[in-house]
């Protein structure tokens, strides 16, 4: 009886011991950290291999063309709509704000700067993450679980060159094009609201739009777009390629691709903005 009591005591004491608790906490933090570093390492290695295979033959122009069309052309409606309504809302909201200190004249400038520097690249990146990131992950994931990727290898075709390189290249090249179009549409959305709803004079609005816009505003947005295009296609390929077996595996790969691409876009956006900011 006293033996068990002693044991119980010892166990309770161990349960509450701050040293053990601290050690346990350290182990957990360590494990999480190692897991995180491992994931970062695997992703970096994957990205490195992907980039390497973008620049080494054989190349697949046919497949690249298909991806360019898929990522660029077919994303146009989604990205265009996003840009249009964002530009419109932006004009309304900035008017509300600026009219409070009689600076309505700045609406056009604020719209064009926000759209080109920030909103067009980020929103286009997020929309494309949903559209393209998901479909890449689903397609490559399905190829993984149905052994089509293994079949490629047996037919003397490197999966990185055949599947991944065309997508990375297409994403990196096409997003800037999409964003350039989105810039124009977004600014036009602001113009529509400005002229038809807020009663700006058309010439004045256009003049204000150009007045403070520099090439750097647009170009920095395009650089961001390029980075986001790479992130979206990379995450789609990475999660699809490492998809677990079964339909569930492909589903998880798709979700992970979209979520991780979106978060990475927002993080990268901050650092890129800071970089361009410092460059001034």
């Amino acid at each position: 009886m006293s033996m068990t009591e002693q044991q119980d005591d010892a166990e309770t004491a161990r349960g509450f011991s701050p040293v053990v608790w601290l050690l346990d906490l350290c182990t957990r933090i360590g494990a999480t950290l190692l897991g995180f570093l491992g994931a970062v390492g695997r992703l970096s290695a994957f990205a490195g291999r992907g980039i390497y295979h973008c620049f080494t033959p054989p190349f697949y122009p046919r497949l690249l063309w298909r991806q360019l069309v898929d990522i660029g052309y077919y994303s146009l409606p989604v990205v265009g709509m996003t840009a249009l309504f964002t530009g419109m809302v932006l004009a309304l909201q900035s008017y509300t704000g600026f009219s409070r200190f009689s600076a309505e004249g700045a609406v056009a400038t604020v719209v064009v700067l926000s759209v080109t520097r920030e909103l067009a690249p980020v929103l286009a990146g997020l929309m494309v993450a949903g559209r393209i990131g998901a479909s890449i992950a689903a397609e490559i994931g399905t190829m993984r679980v149905t052994e089509q990727i293994d079949a490629l290898t047996t037919l003397s075709t490197h999966p990185f060159k055949y599947l991944i390189a065309p997508r990375l290249i297409a994403g990196t090249l096409m997003l800037p094009v999409l964003v350039l179009i989105a810039d124009v549409i977004g600014v036009y959305g602001g113009y529509i609201v400005g002229v038809y709803k807020l009663d700006f004079i058309s010439e004045n609005y256009i003049h204000r739009t150009w007045e403070y816009l520099t090439a750097e505003d647009v170009i920095s947005g395009l650089w961001k777009a390029s980075a986001f295009g790479f992130i979206v296609t990379l995450m789609g390929c990475y999660h699809g390629f490492n998809s677990q077996r079964g339909a569930q595996g492909v589903g998880a790969a798709t979700t992970n691709a979209v979520v991780s691409a979106s978060i990475l876009i927002l993080i990268a956006n901050y650092f890129l903005t800071q970089l361009f900011f410092a460059g001034k």
Partner: peptide, 12 residues
């Protein structure tokens, strides 16, 4: 080598 996969693994 030539390989016939268990599930076919045709490129769909």
């Amino acid at each position: 080598f030539g390989m016939l996969f268990q599930g076919g693994a045709l490129f769909d």
